[in-house]
Design a protein around this nucleic acid. Sequence first.
DNA 1: ATGAAAGCGCTAACAC
DNA 2: GTGTTAGCGCTTTCAT
Lengths: 341, 341
Amino acid sequence: MSLPNKRPLTLRDVSEASGVSEMTVSRVLRNRGDVSDSTRARVLAAAKELGYVPNKIAGALASSRVNLVAVIIPSLSNMVFPEVLTGINQVLEDTELQPVVGVTDYLPEKEEKVLYEMLSWRPSGVIIAGLEHSEASRAMLRAAGIPVVEIMDTDGTPIDAMVGISHRRAGREMAQAIVKAGYRHIGFMGTKMPLDHRARKRFEGFTEMLAKSGIEIEDRAFYSGGSALAKGRQMTQEMLERSPELDFLYYSNDMIGAGGLLYLLDQGIDVPGQIGLAGFNGVELLQGLPRKLATMDACRLEIGRKAAEIIAARLGEPPVPVETSVTLTPTIAFGDTLKRR
Amino acid sequence: MSLPNKRPLTLRDVSEASGVSEMTVSRVLRNRGDVSDSTRARVLAAAKELGYVPNKIAGALASSRVNLVAVIIPSLSNMVFPEVLTGINQVLEDTELQPVVGVTDYLPEKEEKVLYEMLSWRPSGVIIAGLEHSEASRAMLRAAGIPVVEIMDTDGTPIDAMVGISHRRAGREMAQAIVKAGYRHIGFMGTKMPLDHRARKRFEGFTEMLAKSGIEIEDRAFYSGGSALAKGRQMTQEMLERSPELDFLYYSNDMIGAGGLLYLLDQGIDVPGQIGLAGFNGVELLQGLPRKLATMDACRLEIGRKAAEIIAARLGEPPVPVETSVTLTPTIAFGDTLKRR
DNA sequence: ATGAAAGCGCTAACAC
DNA sequence: GTGTTAGCGCTTTCAT
């Protein structure tokens, strides 16, 4: 531990301090090849003494191996992606691989930029949310020549591999459960995000299945920005004032659904008797609410784990062949806001 | 856009495709130096045609410049750090710098590991949460010879620069407000995290100020894991059953505070008349609750912004001198759960 | 305005 | 077990 040098330390410094060749120092620091215990000890002592931190940039260039996995997601703020990251981390922790996260804010141009930026670091693999990407992004991913796992959604064709759930089917199943429970006058609330393809697909599946029972959504509302809980409250109030005949409210995410639930309880409305409710995602938050919102788990942790496993398997030596398409099946949690039939 | 080659493209490929030297191609791609418009056009066309993505590893090694800023935080799951990241992003977006996030889970050993890992990529700067680090971590940070901004907390001495609030003072001020409002029997609930130094400092400031009024905390409880909202609910119930004399509950974060609030409202208890409540953080979620929890904003966005500004200023050409210690002052939001005096 | 040569700090491959 | 040599793909510097 010396005084702050201007010049960063190099292998050469450790080599000189320990009287061992750079090559041997390198071997010790990477636990490669045979090095005698005495030499190893001497090198480690010198490295520690100097406070040497290897330069991965040089290492990566020389070995053309980069232990990074690019993880590209739309957002960090809605609780769903952090959980996916947790799953990825859990798996990658047992490997040499390191996740590096990029955020796109649901913007294709930003996705393109982030992807370009990350690929320029030559990662060993990519995990990216969604199946919809700009043509340029798809081209980059194909050209990269590395494993690419598209996650969250399986309604489409992957570039390479995919892990997720069918949001269309999720929407259909919820519609089915609602109709089966006897609700007939349905309202929908969601985020104003034309680029959230998964929310869109859920909605499409939902309306499609309702149509089969001759039911149409009777009111809908979209929000953007602000506290989802507060918006859920406010939108629910507005919608019920506008459309008092509604007997079910379907929310595109649990947060606004929770806001709606709190509002209805406040008003003393009978849930799920007078009005039923359902959200989507299975967020942990719901556990603390006075009543449990019906929802559908998006299998976030599992998606993260599985995606990381595919990357790790592909990158293994030798590469293990793995399934390139994993569709998980979420189940409805009826909670206390959706009659069981 | 060619078929997936096994060998990644290099400058040389673009050079050959465009009939211009590698050096000139490099200049075009970085917008450096004088290049004739015709050459520039030819090069750009070739690069695009091939789908070339520059190799930053080689670039960084050659120029010994890396436009990365390491951001090291304890967690992504409690909403507070994503907001700090947003602030950092907002500022760095206007620069060449790119944040790279590492997560420590509040574990010093993991912090050390993550730091080592990140420093080995030779970032241009570090933003790291907290002032408490292992001796080895501090040594690494000093030896790195790059700007280091420690964030969130200013109760201590920074290695280089710091931006945050005084959690001790935050605790004291909340205690003061509570006593002033006439509450005398106080319970505390928090996370079981001996390594969350900021929560600890708030608690210390809180008890210290209470002591000045001759008041002592009469009951306390700690939790770990699970849904904070649910835990807040449950712990509040248990605490009030155990200590029915309490007239105020101070929570170490808003999430458990919100759980407590929902429980009390369920029970029909008069808040803030019979029992007052306060949390900490000013999370957006609270806006949707039936009643607003008293809290204190941790200035998360501003901390992120300011930290990034310091890094950017230090890294500018020429480096702009900046304050190395910024203490923001949060104010109490009384909401509907703390009598105003 | 463009090119040639040198080398960033490390590791692969081979020699001893 | 340990050392030597030759790059990895760029950018710097200097020449033209």
